[in-house]
Design a protein around this nucleic acid. Structure first.
Length: 424
RNA sequence: GGAGAGAUGGCUGAGUGGCUGAAAGCGAUCGCCUGCUAAGCGAUUGUACGCCUUAAAAGGUGUACCGGGGGUUCGAAUCCCCCUCUCUCCGCCA
């Protein structure tokens, strides 16, 4: 959520930024609601002030055994009027709030203008595409042939976009989770947390999933709880409604969680394989920082995610999402795209974002300056470190052998009982 | 699921209708004192929103906030209703 004062004073700038994002927001409605609100506020506060003053007078008179009935009658009318104004104020503020909550973040100045993912500039690349002396197979073939991925059984147990992992496949998934958690906790200084996988409406609103993207979420029937689409939600909300000490910043968390997404609107996209599932595993990194350090922290966060692919020796590139591809809450996002030979394409495997104070404002996460005790909003950041299922895809596709077996990357072998290859 | 107790500022903890944004203590900050530390003394010590002033920082002023929402009243931390959460006991359960 944007600062209402900033919005008020920079309405044309915001209008331009919204156009660059290709979103349609009624900012004229904002202006009229906002000034309407202030008009009502001034009137009602003046009346309240009078009521407070006169009520005190009434108390005095009663104490002195004087007659106060005239004042009481007058204040009774004032109170009625206050009640009316309160009601219209409440309505105006509700409308204003509803509007503000669906306005996306403003892109950082280093984000280039662009309409679609094709316009995302490539920032850097690492490693090389592997050479194959045979036609590389997509992971779903390799996975089914090795009997480690069972799409049919997943569909039977639940439905489309659910997969049963078996034997070495299940073990590889678990190895990846542990490998990533160990890397980020031992070498990158993150604190591991294990969170609830269902959250309430306030948490979903805090990080920006609600109110605008309700259809992307799974909701528990009969309760106001939602399945998390990413650990970003519970982890960022750890400090909702809190004031942190500046000395405690930056604060790094890493969490494993399953993620649940309805994938509404992706019908027909990535229907085969593990790329797009209703349930997948992810290791997520979250940072809380001061405003002046957040962009430096974004670079470090992205490098932390990259380190995973480096250790697994998988070729990837980094793109800087353009204005048209940027997520709702984000001011700047780097996507890590891993090379997937079976797809003959780069596929997103991590997304690292700086939300600046957008989420902090929604979730009311602040910190106190050590220097002068002033309270400010923190900046929040997060990035996948990495999406586990897609990393498994990358391994199956990059490490596949002509005979259909798959080599286990060396870094993972300690987590795989020393096994160096998956064969039938 | 049943019965009970509770939720007040950074913390502990008073406060059962009026000058209480909130006693007292602790903590913190600043000053005095001091060879240093401790002790002592004094002062300061919430957040949000609006308006005025200002280049700004700051300041002034008003309003709101004692778990959340509603009600009673001229006036609510205080009385009433609903909800949430925490704790204790019983039942059930991994």
């Amino acid at each position: 959520m944007l600062d209402i004062k900033f919005l008020r004073q920079n309405i044309d700038f915001v209008r331009k930024k919204m156009r660059e994002r290709n979103v349609d927001v009624d900012l004229d409605k904002f202006t009229s609601l906002d000034s309407g609100r202030r008009d009502i506020l001034q009137e009602v506060e003046t009346l309240r002030s009078e009521r407070n003053r006169v009520s005190r007078e009434i108390g005095q008179k009663k104490k002195n055994k004087e007659d106060a009935s005239e004042l009481i009658d007058r204040m009774s009318e004032v109170s009625t009027r206050i009640k009316e104004l309160d009601e219209s104020l409440r309505k105006t503020e509700e409308d204003l709030h509803d509007l503000i909550m669906i306005i996306p973040n403003i892109p950082h100045e280093s984000v280039v203008y662009g309409a679609s993912p094709e316009d995302n500039p490539v920032v850097r690349e690492w490693g090389e595409k592997p050479d194959f002396d045979f036609e590389p197979r997509p992971h779903w073939e390799t996975g089914e042939n090795l009997n480690i991925l069972d799409f049919a059984r997943g569909a039977k147990i639940t439905g489309a976009r659910f997969t049963l992992y078996r034997g070495m496949g299940a073990m590889l998934e678990r190895a990846l989770i542990n490998f990533m958690l160990d890397l980020h906790t031992s070498e990158h200084n993150y604190t591991e947390v294990l969170t609830p996988f269902m959250v309430n409406k306030e948490s979903m609103t805090g990080t920006g999933q609600l109110p605008k993207f309700a259809e992307d979420l799974f909701k528990i029937e009969g309760m106001d709880y939602y399945l998390i689409p990413t650990a970003e939600v519970p982890v960022t909300n750890i400090h909702r409604e809190e004031i942190l000490n500046e000395n405690d910043l930056p604060c790094y968390y890493v969490a494993y969680s399953p993620c649940f997404r309805s994938e509404a609107g992706s019908y027909g996209k990535d229907t085969r394989g593990l790329i797009r599932q209703h349930q997948f595993n992810k290791v997520e990194m979250v940072k809380f920082t001061t405003p002046e350090t957040s962009y430096g922290e974004l670079e470090k966060l992205t490098l932390n995610a990259e380190e995973v692919l480096k250790r697994l020796n998988i070729h990837y590139r980094i793109v800087n999402l353009c204005t048209g591809d940027l997520g709702f809450s984000s001011a700047k996002t780097y996507d890590l795209e891993a090379w997937m030979p079976g797809h003959n394409a780069y596929r997103e495997i991590s997304s690292c974002s700086n939300f600046e104070e957008f989420q902090a404002r929604r979730a009311n996460i602040r910190f106190r300056r050590a220097e002068n005790g002033k309270v400010e909003f923190v900046h929040t950041l997060n990035g996948s470190g990495l999406a586990i299922g897609r990393t498994l895809v990358a391994i199956l596709e990059n490490y596949q052998q002509k005979d259909g077996s798959v080599i286990i990357p060396e870094a993972l072998r300690p987590y795989m009982k020393g096994i160096d290859r998956i064969t039938l």
